[in-house]
Design a protein around this nucleic acid. Structure first.
Length: 877
RNA sequence: GGGAGUUUAGCUCAGCUGGUUCAGAGCACCUGCCUUACAAGCAGGGGGUCACUGGUUCGAGUCCAGUAAUUCCCACCA
């Protein structure tokens, strides 16, 4: 089949994706083959494709396609995450557009809207992945909130509760006043924020609630919380304040009496050395309060507004109140001064609201034991992290894992399976029926109406940590007695996980914990951490900066293959990748190169009985060897997850070696035919090259592969086998490199026209060239005929009509040459001495592995040979 | 404040156990070519004191220490 003049990805890509789907090429069932399994890092169900997804899923797809071509049973499970906070925010925002407030809806009504939204948008990102060429087994698509997976989450909660690892307790949590929920520490981002440091005067009380003339000064950034103060705290070693021991002071404006206490926490030289203690609204203050048994007074409500307990400024937002109270304090004479101050402030990762420390009752999961075994899985090497540097990060976190706050004050998510009895006690069961049964065991008179289920839902990660298990068998988590089904038994543990390092704790670590707990095995063997996609200037891709290109627009413009290649070109594991559109252009150019090279080859007239020229014979021999060597190299790169190196090796093999050298060498002269033997070899090489490239560029390779021959219906390059490296004659390849150098040299000189037609051509080359390669040199360098062989000093040949001579060692000046050789000889002798010293070191011999010693011996032998050669050449000079 | 990483050509990065194909790749750049597959191309070319200082060694991008710059993670002093 003949190809059109230009490659048009738009025409090709949809066609082949539909073809693959139709022929169920992505589908996988357990069978006798070795499985290769990947579960997708589930994107947010309402999300849209961004460059991070492109990077991640391209890598996943390359790995899965490679495994498939290696003959493994490749299974890539796709799916989406319900992403409770993010999705709920979007739903709330969308309702707001329609003038509907979440507060005005019942839980059921809200969830109905949310599910509608999910149905409407939930499939978008998965559709977009198809555009990218992702070869997921779509029949297995899962959603973290579908009934079976939600049941798994519920069962898990019950399991850990009954095991005593989940508890309900008061804690200072990070409250997001916009999303109206507690969030975990990990979801808080701290940013240095400009604020003010207010120095306030608290008068000492006379004991009856009246101010004396004496006062102390505290420094605070949050004057609006003074009404919730429970004490003033100083360092016990601070002599300045010893006189205040046992005294009480009055809170400005409201004149409430609070004690002066002492605690080591206070630093004497920070601020004024006096700290106002506000247990309800600051995590540290809470701890001090616990130590000193201070009362807790909450003056902020869930919106971040002041409530009645504040007594003043009631109903005002915390920031508004802050502004207002300053004036009031000044008027009352309590304000000493205001300093500019930059302090780190916590913001919600999702809503960007300033986090309010808030005391509330939440559910927690104890992580200590889980973390210990999960750490062991990585330390022991059962799971490999790539790159290795993340082991340190991982260890550090695991050793300091604190309890995981798993409840969220949201509606979108798995509702916590805890039911409260009228007497305040709680039962935790998987279903309302079981809960009622359990409740009746406590009080037989209870009915279903007496039970009140906890209003909160579980953290999203509490469902995604089960993902590698629940996508195969959702009955297993929380039910150790349940025998894994066929899928779980076959596909678990999965092979590789590709994800960003930003969710190493949120997700990766917790999957390892869940795997250990429920499967007694790791969830995956290797974790490949990608970098974060940044723009050319190193900035994070973000909507506000507008520096994030829409991948679909790029695919439209350049084709998915080009986008994939462009993404991979600059992505080594763990390094941030600086994306630039020129890389995608490079991908497009490569597509063009592949396309045109097949147009060339397929256009040749073949003479089956033609005699193979000597240059063609050698060219075929050369490329065959080179192909073998490169295949081995590529395999090695894949094994080490060096995807971009594998790609680059293939890219160069195709472009530089196959197109620029091989095809030029075997290309028949104008009007002539190519001999059948060379043609078959050329097509065979092309076929192997396509297969090597297919994991990275699935569409164009499929298109050309089909153009190469009549394929059976349903046949696909996807299921062809990865080319296997044959034997490789390194010496021959090295010789060919020499020939290439000569050719390049000749071309360079001809191009630059630095030689007068009759002058001998001079250039420096090294080593000898075997006679076999003369025809290659003759053809590629445009030499009409060889005159002489290598005569020890020079290669002679004719360029056009000019006789040329190429000296083998430098040019001119034997004295200079002599000095060079002598210096080299000196160096070699030193080197030899060094190697011999090592070889005579008994400690080295005892400790070093056999292979290392062998390398040293080889070095010794090589050095000896070199010395000999140098001495010989010294004599001839 | 604690920890981890990075620093090699204009840009992005390889460089695995120290050695002689170790100073590399891709892109960009310069020169010449519309040569009958491809100008999104072909051919040729220039370019780096391997951050700095010291140490170990016969020998150091490579190992060690210090300095500087920079990135990320953890913590968060009110």
């Amino acid at each position: 089949m003949e190809l059109k003049k230009n490659y048009n990805p738009a025409e090709v890509e949809d066609k082949w994706y539909a073809y693959w789907l139709k022929n169920r090429c992505f589908h996988s069932e357990p069978d006798s083959r070795e499985p290769y399994t990947i579960v997708i890092p589930p994107p947010n169900v309402t999300g849209i494709l961004h460059m991070g997804h492109v990077l991640n899923n391209t890598l996943n797809d390359v790995l899965i396609r490679k495994a498939r071509m290696d003959g493994k049973n490749a299974c890539w499970v796709p799916g989406t995450d319900h992403a409770s906070i993010a999705t709920e925010n979007k739903v709330v925002a969308r309702l707001a557009e329609r003038g509907i407030k979440k507060e005005d809806l019942t839980r059921e009504e809200f969830l109905k809207y949310a599910w509608e939204w999910k149905e409407e948008h939930g499939g978008i990102i998965l559709q977009q992945l198809r555009k990218l060429g992702a070869s997921c087994d779509w029949d297995r698509t899962k959603f973290t909130m579908e009934p079976a997976l939600s049941d798994a989450v519920t069962a898990t909660f019950v399991y850990f509760y009954k095991k005593g690892l989940i508890y309900h307790g008061y804690r200072m949590v990070n409250w997001d006043p916009v999303a109206h929920t507690a969030i975990s520490d990990d979801e808080v981002v701290h940013r240095d924020t400009k604020s003010h440091f207010y120095h306030l005067r608290y008068y000492i009380s006379d004991g009856n609630g009246n101010p004396t003339k004496d006062f102390l000064v505290i420094a605070t950034t949050r004057p609006e919380t003074i009404m919730a103060d429970a004490a003033i705290c100083v360092n016990p070693a601070d002599e300045r304040y010893h006189s205040l021991r046992g005294k009480k002071v009055l809170i400005p404006l409201i004149n409430r009496e609070i004690p002066v206490i002492e605690d080591d926490y206070v630093e004497m030289d920070f601020g004024t050395g006096c700290l106002k203690v506000t247990p309800a609204h600051d995590a540290h203050d809470y701890e001090i309060g616990q130590r000193h048994d201070l009362p807790i007074l909450e003056i902020l409500d869930d919106d971040g507004r002041l409530n009645e307990k504040a007594r003043i400024l009631v109903g005002q937002d915390r920031f508004e109140a802050r502004k207002n109270i300053v004036g009031m304090l000044e008027e009352a004479g309590n304000l000493v001064k205001i300093e500019e101050y930059i302090s780190p402030v916590g913001y919600s990762e999702r809503t960007d609201a300033v986090i309010e420390p808030k005391l509330s009752k939440q559910w927690f999961l104890k992580l200590e034991g889980l973390a210990k075994s999960a750490l062991e899985a990585v330390e022991s090497g059962s799971i490999k992290l790539i790159p290795d540097k993340y082991r340190n990060v991982y260890r550090h976190w695991m050793e300091n894992a604190h309890d995981w706050c798993i409840s969220r004050q949201l509606w979108w998510g798995q509702r916590i399976p805890a039911w409260y009895l009228p007497d305040g006690s709680v039962v935790v069961e998987e279903t309302p029926e079981q809960a009622l049964k359990a409740a009746r065991a406590i009080n037989p008179a209870l009915t279903a109406a007496d039970l009140r289920q906890d209003e909160d839902v579980l953290d999203t990660w509490f469902s995604s940590w089960l993902w590698p298990i629940s996508v195969f068998d959702a009955k297993r988590p929380g039910h150790p007695e349940h025998k894994p089904n066929r899928d779980l038994g076959y596909y678990y543990p999965t092979s590789d996980l590709v994800t960003g390092p930003d969710i190493i704790f949120f997700w990766v670590a917790r999957m390892i914990m869940a795997g250990g707990e429920f499967m007694n095995d790791v969830p995956f063997r290797n974790v490949y951490f990608t970098g974060i996609v940044r723009d050319k200037l190193g900035r994070k891709m973000s909507k506000t900066l507008g520096n994030s290109p829409d991948p679909l627009v790029l695919i439209e413009k350049y084709g998915a293959d080009s986008v994939r290649l462009g993404m991979l070109l600059c992505s080594s594991a763990g390094n941030d990748i600086l994306y630039d559109e020129s890389q995608v252009e490079q991908g497009r150019n490569f597509c063009g190169k592949i396309w045109n090279s097949w147009r060339l080859v397929s256009g040749w007239r073949v003479d089956e009985n033609g005699r193979q020229s000597e240059s063609s014979r050698v060219a075929v021999k050369w490329f065959d060897n080179l192909l073998s060597r490169t295949i081995a190299t590529v395999e090695d790169h894949y094994r080490k997850f060096r995807i971009n190196d594998a790609l680059m090796a293939t890219y160069k093999l195709f472009w530089d070696d196959y197109c620029s050298w091989y095809l030029e060498l075997v290309k028949p002269a104008w009007g002539e035919a190519i001999d059948g033997y060379t043609f078959d070899a050329t097509v065979g090489f092309f076929d192997k090259l396509l297969k090597l490239i297919h994991p990275v560029m699935p569409f164009i390779t499929e298109e050309i592969w089909h153009a190469m021959a009549d394929r059976r219906p349903g046949e696909t390059i996807m299921y062809e086998r990865t080319p296997v490296a044959g034997p490789c004659d390194e010496a021959f390849l090295a010789g060919f490199e020499q020939a290439r150098q000569i050719i390049t040299g000749v071309r360079g000189i001809r191009a630059q026209k630095q030689i007068a037609p009759k002058d001998p051509l001079k250039l420096s080359i090294e080593g000898e060239v075997s006679e076999e390669l003369y025809p290659i040199i003759a053809k590629a360098a445009g030499i009409s005929g060889f005159v002489g062989a290598v005569d020890g000093a020079a290669v002679s040949f004719i360029v056009g009509t000019v006789k040329c001579s190429v000296p083998l060692e430098g040019l001119v000046d034997t004295a200079q040459e002599r000095a060079k050789v002598e210096a080299e000889l000196e160096h070699q002798r030193k080197f030899l001495a060094g190697v011999r010293a090592k070889l005579s070191n008994e400690g080295f011999l005892a400790r070093a592995p056999e292979a290392v010693v062998a390398v040293e011996r080889k070095k010794e032998a090589d050095a000896l040979a070199r010395i000999e050669a140098l001495e010989a050449s010294l004599k001839t000079l």
